[in-house]
């Protein structure tokens, strides 16, 4: 079955999957924290859109609730929380340095190919139309991890972490019509709590090392040698 045989809504899900992968790449290349959080919010909105489309196509009304939840939490509340945190810590003008942007992007592309290779056996044994997107969701998870290991700012780490969660959620939507409602509500609440806890944690890190640059955490002594 190729894309020309699908109906427009299924095509739209695949299109949104592509755009979600694009936002992951944009986050990888973005060195300004405010814009990073903004792209994260866009990813949340796209995810909510894809979920709502899936709810319509697969006729699973409970996915509408998931879509609404992820729009509210990942598209609005958590980005706003992070945005306020960045402003309160005075980080909104700070640039995180990305050491080798081109190499990072090539690495990201390699991760996409890798996740396609890994998910190929799963995709070939199913008839679910949206399952092609499972490679994309795996890629979003891996790109979130790449974002976390390539950055020094703690805020960027949190955004990477949340984007990993986005990838897992998307995988659940396209492969198993979403998780059970209880699990989904629990995860959504966890993510919200995590955002708040991370906020407290930022202030702790800054109080102890006077910066959010986590590279400084690897030094054991206070004195430079």
């Amino acid at each position: 079955m190729s894309i020309t045989d699908l109906d427009l809504y299924s095509q739209a899900i695949l299109l949104l999957a592509g755009l979600i992968a694009l936002t992951s790449f944009l986050m990888l290349g973005q060195s300004r924290l405010v814009r990073l959080v903004f792209i994260f919010a866009v990813q949340g909105c796209l995810l909510a859109g894809a979920t709502a489309m899936a709810a319509g196509v697969l006729n699973y009304p409970h996915l509408y609730i998931s879509a609404g939840l992820s729009l509210l939490l990942k598209g609005i509340v958590i980005p706003l929380l992070l945005h306020r945190l960045i402003h309160r810590m005075g980080l909104h003008r700070e640039m995180d340095t990305i050491d080798h942007p081109a190499r990072l992007m090539m690495g990201g592309t390699a991760l996409v190919v890798f996740s396609y290779y890994v998910s190929l056996p799963i995709v070939q044994h199913s008839t679910l139309v949206t399952l092609n997107a499972i490679a994309v969701s795996l890629a979003v998870v891996l790109l979130g991890m790449l974002l976390m290991i390539s950055r020094r700012q703690a805020v960027a780490h949190v955004v990477g972490f949340m984007s990993i969660e986005n990838g897992l959620f998307f995988a659940a939507v396209v492969s198993t019509y979403g998780m059970p409602m209880v699990v989904e509500l629990g995860v959504a609440f966890d993510v919200l709590v995590a955002a708040v806890v991370f906020g407290v944690f930022f202030f702790q890190i800054r109080a102890s090392i006077d910066s959010l640059n986590v590279d400084r955490l690897s030094k054991l002594t206070e004195v430079e040698r």
Partner: peptide, 8 residues
Amino acid sequence: ILEAARVH
């Protein structure tokens, strides 16, 4: 990844 024909 997303558009190619799949063999059943």
